[in-house]
Nucleic acid binder design. Sequence first.
DNA 1: TATAATGAATGTGTCGACACTTTTTGGTTG
DNA 2: CAACCAAAAAGTGTCGACACATTCATTATA
Lengths: 241, 241
Amino acid sequence: MKKGVDNMCPVFNESSQSNAPLTDRIFDLLQDSIIKGDIPAGSKISEPELAKTYGVSRGTLREALSRLEERHLVVRSPNHGVRVVSLSYEELIETYQIREVLGGLGSRLAARNMTDEEIAGLRALLYEHEKSIEEDQGLSYYQKEGEFDFHYLVLRGSRNKKLLDILDGGLYQLIRMYRYQVSTTSSRPSHALKEHHRIVDAIEERDEELADYLMCRHIRTARISVEERHRNMKAENDNNG
Amino acid sequence: MKKGVDNMCPVFNESSQSNAPLTDRIFDLLQDSIIKGDIPAGSKISEPELAKTYGVSRGTLREALSRLEERHLVVRSPNHGVRVVSLSYEELIETYQIREVLGGLGSRLAARNMTDEEIAGLRALLYEHEKSIEEDQGLSYYQKEGEFDFHYLVLRGSRNKKLLDILDGGLYQLIRMYRYQVSTTSSRPSHALKEHHRIVDAIEERDEELADYLMCRHIRTARISVEERHRNMKAENDNNG
DNA sequence: TATAATGAATGTGTCGACACTTTTTGGTTG
DNA sequence: CAACCAAAAAGTGTCGACACATTCATTATA
């Protein structure tokens, strides 16, 4: 499963090594469970119960929860406990707005700083994705996570660590969560791939401005698609209600 | 001290209420100490010692440290302890690059979403700052924190909570830290104020594109000033060494 | 005298326990 | 039967303790 792309991109679960501190592993596990919906969005968390589930002490778990809270994946109200965020449409759009300009910046910097080898690797990834789309097998993986692999490589190429921190450590999560929840199989994956190729073209030609512009537009397209889907769902609800 | 601007802007130390959970208060205290340099950058932290200093248990303090780590204000290496970040020049520039596009986005959204009352408040703040600059008293405060009050109000006006989260919860800190450390009394505070006024002009006229552009340029100016200062310091060091 | 081995001291990782607060339950009363 | 109050159950906030890892000081050795 996951084909050759497996382990290519350490974006998620950075510290799941079995020798890493327990708290870190719990943090990763929890984050994954929240994003994938194993722990339902909006549900309340019982610290003793969760601690028993993962087989760790409450203090250890609370440390992980503190970090999750800092990442806005859970919300804690004093004396009332912790509950998983319930992603709102507005928040999702806000996230896309930010991702748009940051993605643009990342792409621009990537055009400036990426090595030729890295660019080749990026292109290779896209061919992987193409194959994945043709076969039904990898399709679901590509649409759920594959796109992040691409964006991750670009971000790495930007040489701006803070940028990667922000996007990988807090911003992507919401979007991934959304994808898992509404299982949004982007209607035209091949179209997205074409856009990816164009972005790599621009990076390859060291055309910073174009790379910036194309990435912005690419993400804006995704946002608009979400907005459309939302309008449709709302209209449908209004009809049924 | 701090004149009338006191308590005007709750950007920092949000949860220092005396009834807030102990962990949160420790978190705020620690963050402030780190930013202001009371706990020197790069210094190693002894958990038992710090816990005794603040009069809390180690578990409580560790929770705060976990959040500080998520915010990249401290770095933890397993079994080797926690040490305060030592801000590097590169990281600072990276931060400015991001702040540039995010500030632009915030300003653009502020032009779209701010109410007339909010805009009036923004203008009032600038007049406060003008007065502060004329009197020597408030000068140091303005140059250290006043500018953040301005940017904070704009961000609030953008109606994009995530944007505020990112900038206030992680990005501004580095820059504030830098200001305290090199006590960079921006050479031309009145010039910065003029730029602020122009930005408010654009917001007032609901000129999104101009607001975006001016804010970007304003932050870019700050970045370039930092870069220049850095070049000068380096040149001086090279001469003396 | 420099270096390597060894034991003490300090520090981190993790856990279990207790006090106080909120929620739930179940009985009581109008 | 509904509304209300009280006791119990569950949960959160905070603390202290112990095992293991790391660092430091000391001593023994080449």
